[in-house]
Design a protein around this nucleic acid. Structure first.
Lengths: 216, 216
DNA sequence: TGTACATCAGTGAACGCGCGTTCACTGATGTAC
DNA sequence: TGTACATCAGTGAACGCGCGTTCACTGATGTAC
């Protein structure tokens, strides 16, 4: 009922006093949308973002120091969303192995749902210019899950950091290849991920008997 | 002795009649150098390439229809070089398993030597715009090697295409992560690759006894 | 209740720049007669 | 041997464009007195 529609009729109403931060949100959302379409941070122009949300170009400077700061903010928020999605996806899982499975699956599914953003997050040249400490979050959670699989006897004992690292490389590789070569006839995702989990972490194998049983 | 130096003293001598193709080579080499430094095809400008090799910007059009055509040509040549390097690296190998090992190792080492080019080859948005059939070459060779490992009893029998696909994802993931996050303390490359070959393809395991022996 | 002032949320015009691409040209070298 | 012509390997100037960033500004809303 409150007529707070800011983008009614092509025009944009200025935010009320004290609500200047709303524009920040609009800029972030617009930039995220455009980055996801572009798949490359070099292609994103400040002016295009301003145009997209119906604001003058200099207005962006009210909230971001420069283009890099804007892209960084988008990526931080973007990574938070990825982590939240992965977390949500694994709450229903009964045991560590199933949690790791869901973690991996939801990670790649998020990537395929936001291919451009995933690319920018992991492959943009911004990575070389400045580092993004928030990225360690997801990596740390994966190490933790692998550790818990081992503790629960659902994965053979090994160095959890090394196993998680190999898993990370493979899972990222799967996501990135599918995004970058969308025309290639990739096999079903869950099967491939289960195969990788089994082979790289020993998930799904019966532990301690020497018998390797891999039934779908 | 022949004073054919084309870039002596800051100036560039026009190529002799019938040797117009030489400029094409210079453009390709210059563009490759710049792409390797940029790591992103969007950042490459035609004018910058021309400037780099000391030629007027319109001269590029004598050999390439537009910027995309230039980048495509660089990437094709670049992939050929990668394949040749990998091939050369595996000639000394005694058996298929060692060939696969060398193939993988030289692949990633080439990537780390030419990080920007590897990125552009696999991650540039040009991939979405046009496809690069020459890329299938390396993938096909990997499938072939896996098949031969299985035939030689150096890897457990399985679908070679699936095994090669998983290996490809993991190996690409390893290379790409190391390139995109150069500040991360990655473990030694050969160890990680051997681990992946063992786990994903079964290389280095004793076949047919049920005993999984993984000794370095 | 009035009014001067401060603050907030932006805007419009302008700057200098590098870009992709086009166009008509230049000048050296070969070739036909 | 001479000369007109064709070809080749480029070039210089210009076009229109979108970019990041700056600057002084505007106009609505709150606040002190």
């Amino acid at each position: 009922m409150e007529a707070s529609t800011p983008t009614a009729g092509g025009g944009r109403r200025r935010n009320p006093r004290g609500q200047g931060e709303r524009l920040r949100e609009e800029i972030l959302a617009g930039a995220a949308r455009m980055l996801d379409e572009l798949g490359d941070d070099e292609g994103l122009s400040l002016r295009a973002v301003a145009r997209e949300i119906g604001v003058a170009a200099p207005s962006v400077y009210l909230h971001f120091a420069d283009r890099d700061a804007l892209v960084y903010a988008v990526l931080e928020r973007c990574h938070d969303d990825l982590v939240a999605t992965v977390e949500r996806g694994q709450t229903a899982a009964a045991d560590p192995a199933e949690q790791l499975r869901q973690h991996t699956l939801h990670h790649v599914e998020w990537a395929l749902r936001h291919p451009g953003l995933y690319k920018v997050l992991h492959e943009s040249t911004l990575n070389q210019r400045i580092d993004m400490p928030f990225k360690r979050d997801l990596a740390d959670r994966a190490v933790d899950l692998v550790q818990r699989c081992m503790d629960a006897g659902q994965a053979p004992p090994a160095d959890p950091a090394a196993v998680a690292l190999d898993l990370r490389a493979a899972v990222y590789g799967v996501a990135s290849l599918r995004i970058n070569q969308p025309r290639f006839p990739w096999p079903p995702l869950p099967d491939q991920l289960d195969r990788l989990l089994t082979k790289l972490a020993g998930i799904g194998q019966v532990i301690g008997t020497g018998v390797a049983d891999s039934e779908a």
